[in-house]
Amino acid sequence: MWSTTEVVVTGQYKGPALWKVTKGDGVVWIIGVLSVTTANPQFDQKRIDTILTGAQTVYLPPEAKGRVGAMFQYLSSRRLKPGQTLRDVTAPEDYARFLALSSKYGIEPARYANDTAIWAALRFRAAVSSISGYTDSDVINAILKLAKRHKVKVEHIATYKISPLLKRISRATDAEGRHCFATTLDGIEFDARTMNRLTADWATGNLAGLKAVYAGNTAPQCMEDDDLAKDFRDRSGSDTVAMIERALGNTKRSVMILPVSVLIKGDLLDRLRAKGYLVQLPVSLRQ
Score class of each variant (00 low, 15 high):
58 V>I: 06
62 P>A: 07
69 G>T: 03
100 A>E: 15
56 Q>A: 15
71 M>T: 13
89 V>P: 01
86 L>K: 10
69 G>P: 00
97 R>H: 09
62 P>R: 01
96 A>V: 12
92 P>G: 11
89 V>L: 03
72 F>N: 01
65 K>D: 13
88 D>Y: 11
56 Q>K: 10
69 G>F: 05
99 L>H: 08
60 L>N: 14
83 G>I: 06
96 A>D: 15
60 L>V: 12
61 P>G: 04
81 K>N: 11
74 Y>E: 02
93 E>M: 03
85 T>D: 00
92 P>E: 10
74 Y>N: 01
65 K>L: 15
70 A>T: 13
64 A>I: 04
73 Q>K: 11
82 P>F: 00
67 R>P: 03
77 S>Y: 09
100 A>V: 12
86 L>Q: 09
59 Y>R: 02
86 L>A: 10
78 R>G: 00
83 G>T: 06
94 D>N: 15
90 T>F: 10
95 Y>H: 15
68 V>C: 03
60 L>H: 08
89 V>H: 05
76 S>C: 05
65 K>H: 13
91 A>K: 07
71 M>R: 14
78 R>P: 00
98 F>R: 08
87 R>E: 06
86 L>E: 07
56 Q>V: 05
66 G>R: 02
72 F>W: 07
63 E>I: 12
59 Y>L: 08
72 F>M: 05
66 G>D: 09
58 V>P: 05
92 P>F: 12
74 Y>D: 01
95 Y>S: 04
64 A>P: 01
87 R>I: 01
95 Y>W: 12
63 E>N: 06
99 L>V: 11
101 L>A: 08
95 Y>N: 09
101 L>S: 07
88 D>K: 10
68 V>A: 13
94 D>M: 12
60 L>I: 10
77 S>I: 10
80 L>H: 11
91 A>T: 08
82 P>H: 00
66 G>F: 03
59 Y>N: 02
70 A>W: 12
58 V>N: 10
63 E>H: 02
90 T>M: 13
78 R>V: 02
66 G>C: 03
75 L>T: 01
84 Q>N: 10
60 L>F: 12
94 D>Q: 14
102 S>R: 12
79 R>W: 00
99 L>G: 11
78 R>Y: 00
99 L>F: 08
73 Q>N: 05
66 G>H: 04
98 F>D: 03
68 V>T: 07
75 L>Q: 04
58 V>A: 09
101 L>H: 05
89 V>A: 03
65 K>N: 15
96 A>Q: 15
88 D>S: 14
72 F>S: 04
66 G>V: 03
61 P>F: 04
86 L>C: 06
73 Q>W: 05
96 A>F: 08
66 G>W: 08
61 P>L: 06
96 A>Y: 08
96 A>L: 13
71 M>P: 07
102 S>Q: 05
60 L>A: 11
77 S>R: 15
76 S>L: 12
58 V>D: 09
86 L>R: 05
96 A>M: 11
93 E>T: 00
76 S>G: 11
100 A>S: 15
57 T>L: 03
85 T>R: 07
56 Q>F: 02
74 Y>F: 14
87 R>L: 05
62 P>L: 02
82 P>L: 00
